[in-house]
Design a protein around this nucleic acid. Sequence first.
DNA 1: CTGGATCCATGATGATACTG
DNA 2: CAGTATCATCATGGATCCAG
Lengths: 241, 241
Amino acid sequence: MPTTPRTAYAHFCMLAKALERLGDRWALLVVRDLLTGPKRFTDLMDRLGGITPRTLTQRLRDLEADGLVQVDREPGRREVWYRLTPAGLDLAPALDELALWGLRHLAAPPAPSEPAHPEHLLRSVRLVLDRAGIDVGPATWVVRTLDRDDAFTLRGRDGRWSLVAQAASDPDVELLGTRRDLALYLATRPQARAAGHPGVTMRGDEREIGRFLDALAVFPPLSTGPASHATAGQQTGGLVD
Amino acid sequence: MPTTPRTAYAHFCMLAKALERLGDRWALLVVRDLLTGPKRFTDLMDRLGGITPRTLTQRLRDLEADGLVQVDREPGRREVWYRLTPAGLDLAPALDELALWGLRHLAAPPAPSEPAHPEHLLRSVRLVLDRAGIDVGPATWVVRTLDRDDAFTLRGRDGRWSLVAQAASDPDVELLGTRRDLALYLATRPQARAAGHPGVTMRGDEREIGRFLDALAVFPPLSTGPASHATAGQQTGGLVD
DNA sequence: CTGGATCCATGATGATACTG
DNA sequence: CAGTATCATCATGGATCCAG
C-alpha cells in the first residue's frame, strides 16, 4: 500500500490534481509533440532534444499509467508507436493557453543554440488567427521543411482555422525552407514579412501571398500588460528585432 | 556567466519557455493562490499545505525574478505581501484550462486527508457558468466560510459571471459552512444539491435558491471523451457518488 | 538500428529545527 | 511573521551499454 507519492499535493483542487499528472519535467512537452500525431520513441527523442532516454521512458510510462498516452506495440513489428488518448488530446486547450502566455510575455528570437521547429509557432499562429476570427476568404497554406520533409497545412474559412501535419495537394501559398529558416520567418515581425526571408521560398501568385501576409499581420499578438518580465525588455510587436 | 540552467529546455517554443518559468513544483499553485488577491508568506504556507518554507521562499524568489510576483515590503511593517504582476495575472486563462481538464478527467471526491477549500471549485464554477452562458437573471451569491471567515461573491448577469474574494452586501443567496462542508456541497452532483448538505446553511428565499440550483446544474461539466483515466472509473456527472 | 537499461553525479525538494 | 540552517532523499542529467 503506497503512501501518498512524492508528487502528490493532497489538495482538493483540480488544478493540483492535474499538475500531479502533468507537472513532471518534460511531461507536457511529450504531450505537445504527440498532439501532432503518433510518434516513435526515437522520433520523440529527436524532437525533445535534450531529454535522456531514461527520462523519456519514465514519462511515457507515467503518461500511459495515467491514461493520457496509449502504446501501440504490434507483434512482429519493431517500432513502438505512442499516441494520445482522448484525455490526452483534451489537453490541447490548456497547452494552447500556456503557449500563448509564453508568446505574450517571453517572446524572444531563437538563440543560436536553440533548435527551431516551425510547428510550435504554427500552432500558435493557428490559434491567434482563429481567436481573432481573421477571414481573408478560403485559404490553404502549406509549410514544408526541406531538412526533414515535414509538412503542415494551415486552412482558414469563415474565420475558423485548422492546422494538420500533412501537406494539402492544392495550396494557395507554399512556404519552403529548413526548419530553422521557416521558424525564423514566422518569428519575424509582421511589417518585415513581405520582404521574405533568406532561405525561405514562397510559392503562389502575388494575390495569394498578399492574403497570406494580411492574415499573418495579427501574429504575434501583443502582450496585454507592460512587458514586465525582468529580462524581456522591449516589446517590438515581433519575436525578432 | 551561468551556462544554461538545468531548468532550461533550449527549445524555440513558447510552451517550453513558459514551462521553464512555471514548471517547478508548487510554482503554479503559488500563482493559483495569489490569483485571489495578495497574500502574506504564512497565508500561502497555510493554503499550500505541505510546502516547506524553504521551497516557498525559493518559488517566490523565482517568480519575482521572472516578473510574475511583486513583493511589497514596507519599512517598519513586519508583514510582507506578495501579489501578482500583470504578467502573473495573465496566467489565469492557462490555469483555468488546466483546472477544467482536471475537472473533466480527474474528478473525485475529496479524500479524508485532503483539506478542501471552496475557492478552487468556485473558480471552476464561475468559468463553467460563464462558458455555458448561463443566464438566470441578475444574480449575486455569497459563499462564506465559518472556520476562517473567508467570503466569495459569484455574480452573474446576461450570461457573464464573475468571482471576487469578498462578500457582497446584498446577496440573493448566501451559503454558510466550513470550508470542507462548502467544498463537499459544491462537489455534490447537481441532482442531489436541492436537498442541501449537512453543515451548509442556505439563506435566501425559495425562488432565489431555485435560480441558484438551476444555474449550478451545469456543474461539474461532463468529460468530453470516455473516462479514460486508469483510476478514475465511473463518471457519474458529479464529483461525489 | 530501435528501444530501452544501468551506473553514477548532482541539483531539487522534503523534514525538522531554529532565529531575527 | 518571515523566513534560514541542516540533513536526508529523490528525480533528473550524462554517459555508456545491451537485447531483439
